[in-house]
């Protein structure tokens, strides 16, 4: 009898914690987003007023636009760079292990460290621009970091630097998992290398492609530290993303209701992007 209860007892605290700290807190945040809370949480029902205010807020529109620019740029470039590097690295390269480690080490760093490093590299005065001047390109100008229309692209640059090596590792693992015999058979049949890649190798990388997309989209939607360290959301709020918006409103500007509403929107964006993919994945059968 005791033996039956014991395993349940062991997982019970985690179960309680998940119920409270994940589901309970999501519900709590949802409730806050339907109240008129400002400085202090109040539980006076306000209907959709916080959401209405949120979508009237110019800063939120900028944050959503930036998420789109950053998300698409970050995901697409990471996928292209990661896949290219993986294919190059899969050609019987000497010192492959070393090169792989070099591509991957940024993943061990905090986004704050990455942001700090790139903030310095992209420094409009003393950074990359000055290097080009010293090399003789006197007219070279690179002010993206302080240019409201370009600052978000700096976040893309730094983000790709940090995460593309990881995508490479996933694709390389995918490439190594492809059955050799199919490729040998295709070669015997006289298929050229580009054809083999296009018709056999790339299609069989679909599950890896799928995983990478999910991970990258997830990183993009949640990205907060990188923006904080690199641009602080600036200049002004030109490079704000939903996560920095949420932080600013919930914790520095004391607009709790609006902060809660923006957090709920972030959750919905994650669900909207990831659930359809997850669904199609489950329907398509288990991947390896």
């Amino acid at each position: 009898m005791v033996e039956d209860a014991l395993p349940r007892l062991v997982v019970a605290p985690t179960f309680a914690a998940a119920l409270l700290f994940i589901y309970g807190y999501i519900a709590w945040t949802a409730v806050l987003s339907f109240t008129t809370s400002r400085m202090l949480p109040s539980y006076h029902f306000g209907g959709l007023i916080q959401y209405a205010n949120l979508f009237d807020n110019a800063r939120w529109s900028v944050a959503l636009g930036n998420l789109l620019v950053f998300g698409v740029g970050f995901v697409v470039i990471c996928l292209v760079v990661g896949l290219t590097l993986a294919i190059l690295l899969d050609q019987n390269i000497r010192a492959e292990g070393f090169i792989r480690s070099v591509y991957l080490y940024p993943m061990a760093l905090s986004f704050i460290v990455t942001g700090t490093a790139w903030k310095w590299l992209l420094n409009p005065e003393l950074g990359f621009e000055k290097v080009m001047h010293d090399f003789g390109f006197a007219d070279f100008s690179f002010d993206w970091l302080i240019n409201p229309d370009r600052a978000i692209y700096c976040v893309v640059i730094a983000g790709v630097w940090q995460s593309s090596g990881f995508v490479m590792a996933l694709f390389l693992a995918g490439l190594r998992g492809i059955d050799d015999s199919i490729i040998k058979a295709a070669r015997v049949d006289g298929a050229s290398l580009p054809t083999i890649y296009r018709r056999i190798i790339l299609p069989s990388l679909w599950p890896t492609f799928f995983s990478c997309f999910m991970i990258l989209a997830h990183i993009a939607i949640k990205s907060f530290d990188l923006v904080m360290a690199l641009t602080g959301g600036g200049p002004g709020f030109a490079s704000d993303v939903p996560a920095t918006f949420m932080y600013a409103f919930a914790f520095t500007r004391n607009q709790i209701g609006m902060g809660a509403a923006s957090a709920m929107m972030m959750l919905m964006i994650v669900v909207a992007v990831i659930v359809p993919f997850l669904y199609s994945d489950l329907r398509g059968g288990r991947r390896g």
Binding site: R8, V11, T14, I26, F224, A250, F251, M266, L267
Partner: peptide, 28 residues
């Protein structure tokens, strides 16, 4: 057991949520 299977499914969500959605309650 069924209990542990439910827990597993429930925990999966914890890997997906953006943590912004728990910050305000947790701060309190």
């Amino acid at each position: 057991s069924r209990f542990s299977d439910i827990l597993f499914a429930a925990l999966m969500m914890g890997c997906f949520i953006p943590f912004q959605v728990v910050l305000l309650p947790m701060a309190r």
